[in-house]
Amino acid sequence: MAASGPNGGPAPPSSSSFFRTMVSTFRTIKYEHLVAGVSGGVVSTLILHPLDLLKIRFAVDDGKSIEKHRPQYSSLRHAFRSIFQQEGVRGLYKGVTPNVAGAGTAWGFYFLFYNSIKTELQEGNSKTQLSPGLHMMAAAQAGALTLAMTNPIWVVKTRLCLQYGGDELAQAKDPSKTYKGMVDALYKIGKYEGIRGLYKGFVPGLWGVSHGAIQFMAYEEMKSSYNIFNQHPIDHKLGTLEYLFFAALSKLFAAVTTYPYQVVRARLQDQHSEYKGAVDCVQKILRIEGGWGLYKGLRPNLLRVVPATAITFTVYEKTSQYMLG
């Protein structure tokens, strides 16, 4: 009989058994989770990409915009109007290709790895209740694996979102940082900056693994508690509105508690800024902009990620439910 954890579930695997757990995890993979996750990520990203672009532009604003030929925005409405007037509708969708590719890939692999690890921890019994700590551990492992595979795509998305309309002449002075699209950006970053360039922001991205871990833990706990309250099995399928509500609430909680890492990651990936690393970036933000500097772009981020996650999780749950029967 398997050992029990503090909340009656399986005990967390020791570090010596981690490799065996990961190997056996891939034996339980169901690719329906990959397809369902990709579907959710693509749909939500296509709908809400303009808000992601605004979040990135606010996040990298360090108060030195004039020196860097970077436009300044006083509010979300002003930013939206300025981009639309200067760059048109296409300006609001700069970086959408790598964003769709990144979101689809990231959500697909995240759900794939998470469900595989979760199934392994449950020893194949979907009715086994896992502790919050095990949910967080499964999500953290899935997040680290996903980030290692998708970080170059996020670097490209950030770079493309930070190409400003009317700034072509300034950018032409350094053609290595002017990109025609996703493939061109991948090629130039790899050629001129190497692997280090493609993995800029990876360290704060690892901090962000805690974001996904907190989000999935909250989501799973709310679903389980709701089913227990209604005297249903913990793997009972919920309605669309219930999935929307629990996904949105879990994302709001995770976003507010872990947002600063996104500011740091965006600034490290910004082709217009130079930092020695994540620690240097945090120190400069705190010294020049104060604590609120770590929360720049939070408003457009919440306006985007809460409905985006609600859409993603609902599409995922319904698609996987259909495919898995």
Results as ranks from 00 to 15, higher is better:
Trp292Leu: 14
Tyr295Arg: 06
Gln171Lys: 05
Lys200Arg: 09
Gly41His: 00
Ser250Asp: 08
Gln141Val: 13
Leu169Gln: 07
Gln163Lys: 08
Ala138Gly: 01
Gly104His: 06
Lys296Gly: 06
Gln85Trp: 04
Pro6Gly: 05
Met222Glu: 09
Leu252Ser: 11
Ala148Thr: 03
Ala310Met: 01
Arg20Val: 08
Val43Gln: 01
Ala218Arg: 05
Leu53Asn: 13
Val89Thr: 08
Arg304Ser: 15
Met182Thr: 15
Leu162Gln: 11
Tyr187Val: 13
Gly104Val: 03
Thr240Glu: 08
Arg299Pro: 05
Asn227Arg: 12
Gly197Gln: 10
Val89Pro: 00
Gly190Val: 04
Lys188Tyr: 00
Ala248Asp: 03
Leu238Tyr: 08
Phe246Arg: 06
His33Cys: 01
Tyr93His: 07
Ala213His: 02
Ala170Glu: 05
Thr21Glu: 12
Arg27Met: 05
Asn230Cys: 14
Gly37Cys: 01
Asn99Gly: 15
Arg70Ile: 11
Glu67Val: 05
Gly63Cys: 04
Lys118Ile: 04
Ala139Met: 00
Tyr114Cys: 01
Ala11Pro: 12
Thr25Lys: 09
Lys223Arg: 14
Phe245Lys: 15
Val35Leu: 10
Gly9His: 01
Val96Cys: 07
Ser17Asp: 12
Leu286Thr: 10
Gly201Ala: 03
Val282Asp: 03
Asn125Gly: 06
Gln129Lys: 14
Gln171Cys: 03
Arg159Ser: 08
Gly124Ser: 00
Leu92Ile: 05
Asn115Leu: 00
Val89Tyr: 05
